[in-house]
Design a protein around this nucleic acid. Structure first.
Lengths: 202, 202
DNA sequence: CTATAATCATGATCATCGTCATGATTGCTT
DNA sequence: AAGCAATCATGACGATGATCATGATTATAG
């Protein structure tokens, strides 16, 4: 019997034990790459070892950072949704960026809600709770960016607009026809903008 | 070592070979239960043997009906989306049914677009093509049900409304708080209805 | 009526994945 | 400076799932 070692690959760095801050760095990097991979492929389609590999580690050390994959999922959701830009944002510009082909074509770097909301339904209660908290703050964020209308109508418009934005990106990503997909984005953008006109605000 | 057979279960019917029409029945039943299971749990979370068991068969016979699981996915999408109610439907009533807790809580029997659109992104090109065809006809269906406005605005309103409807159901299903989830449905419904008012139609 | 072909059940195979056990290395504490 | 403890790599285990091989049974062609 002949054993051939075709290629062992270069033995990269061999630091076995890392400093305390490097461990925190690693944990953060795991959450970062996990959020990208999850947005890109969905929760189930990403394996633990794929996440660790993308973070520059091997699968074994994973359970030193997280109790389970479900735990990672829940923490990842909290991680991505925690960065809410609270400040006053220009809604028109945000709409244009959100409902754009560039956003549609880059789920990994795009809105976590558009990429993950539909998948949350099949995840653990902790994950759903994290997503709910994120959605709540997102709705309030959109409401703040709306033009001056009554508080009642403001919340309604925020929820309706947000639903349309998320729905349009999801539909655009599902459509296998660039022209139609572009149209869904553009028409939804124009439709939402029309409701922002002072003329249609009662 | 003691081997206990607690329950072998009754040997049900033992019909090995089925007639030609019963085979067509079986195939249809497979597509039906698959569409329900897929809507309920997502494509990846449903196994071939789970589908077959729900159809009253065992996993082995599956490949006599379909070439692969991906094939089943694509055919299932075409199967559910083929039943488009073309006739004139009452948009208000449809809105009320669609954006209702009952619909949100029954994905298995609900709108395939709301249940599967986000998942399509990770499926095979054939599946995406089937979904695109379905979405195209759905948009036209909504457009026909819209009140009398210019053709240009009609298409815009159809796409915007449809995106908002799908998005709202997806968000409502992701939210782990009944009050907020209900609010998303209800506010989106009211928001869409407001745009249907002749007053706001330009 | 006989032979062929089709349909489905049983069981096996191969790959993937989540998780755990072990061990090596090294940062930290005393 | 020395021992403790933590972090990660390697490897293995058990479960699950997609797919295929085989065989039994019977519808259907001739």
């Amino acid at each position: 019997m002949m054993i051939m070692i075709v290629s062992m690959g270069p033995v990269e760095k061999f630091e076995m034990k890392v400093s305390r801050e490097r461990m925190a760095e690693n944990r953060d990097r795991i959450l970062d790459v996990a959020s990208r991979l999850f947005r890109e492929k969905g929760f189930d389609a990403v394996s633990v070892s794929e996440v660790m590999k993308a973070a520059g580690l091997t699968h074994g050390g994973f359970y030193g950072h997280f109790g389970s994959k479900d735990d990672l999922v829940a923490e990842t959701i909290g991680h991505v949704l925690s960065r809410s830009d609270g400040g006053g944002l220009d809604l028109r510009a945000y709409l244009a960026d959100y409902l754009a082909p560039r956003h549609r074509d880059n789920p990994a770097a795009g809105c976590p809600t558009a990429g993950l909301a539909a998948d949350i339904r099949h995840q653990t209660p902790a994950a759903r709770a994290a997503m709910t908290a994120g959605l709540r703050s997102q709705i309030e964020c959109v409401a703040k960016a709306l033009p001056d209308i009554k508080a009642e109508d403001r919340r309604r418009a925020a929820i309706g607009s947000w639903a349309a934005m998320v729905g349009a990106v999801i539909l655009a990503r599902a459509i296998d026809d660039r022209a139609l997909s572009d149209e869904v984005l553009e028409q939804t953008r124009a439709w939402i903008e029309a409701t922002l006109d002072p003329a249609s605000a009662k």
